[in-house]
Write a protein that binds this DNA or RNA. Sequence first.
DNA 1: CTATCATGTCGATGATTCTTGAAGCATCGT
DNA 2: ACGATGCTTCAAGAATCATCGACATGATAG
Lengths: 118, 118
Amino acid sequence: MADPEDLAFEALADGTRRRILRLLAERGECAASEISEAITNVGRTTVSSHLRVLRVANLVDERRDGRFRYYSLARKPAEDMVEFLRGLYQGSLAALRDRMEHEAPPDQSEATKWAESS
Amino acid sequence: MADPEDLAFEALADGTRRRILRLLAERGECAASEISEAITNVGRTTVSSHLRVLRVANLVDERRDGRFRYYSLARKPAEDMVEFLRGLYQGSLAALRDRMEHEAPPDQSEATKWAESS
DNA sequence: CTATCATGTCGATGATTCTTGAAGCATCGT
DNA sequence: ACGATGCTTCAAGAATCATCGACATGATAG
């Protein structure tokens, strides 16, 4: 039930969580309080919950220092998610090649394009 | 209300919808019935609902032919989503982004043309 | 025209998720 | 030790979502 791909996509499904990720991308490492102040329209406990989701999905890293907890974008982020997207692209290339072999050939520029990207 | 980035991420949050996208990546264009048969553990109406979500999120294209409706991965898929991810993880997604930006200009009579960028 | 086929839509329902106040856990300063 | 600070977890209500069966639509065949 804990497929990393699932966790990453489910984590990204929420707009508030994407706002947090954008903030971390802009400012770099932030303390939880700084994130709470920047993310409007939601309370601190809500932000904390979202940070938990992002952490278990391996989208952010957590560093503890005294009473503070600093969050930053995960150093090795969401590899399964990226692989899923890349898989869509490559698999579709294969389907395109299949159709090209059985149907009318496309013009030259098209042929060179898909040929290059492999 | 709902901007395209939201729609795309929310659409990708569901595992069944990602299964559908994977199927379309493998087989290319499929009729709705073919998708329903391939996607196990869910009924036909559920698949139909998912296809609608994917369509409004601009992740799949729909082509009607007689009583049939053929679905395929969107020719110009989820650019806002990819743009968001690029902002976060430029390194990991650089290649994917490049391919999407090589999207060919408006000669789209070829039904298979989208594949260059997905 | 009628029956059938391929699909989409609607309404209900059970499950999941978001949000929040209150309470809990450490840690720091004095 | 005591209180204050930074942050999380818990419990629960509200909102959203996934799933399905029944019905609707629209095209094709006989």
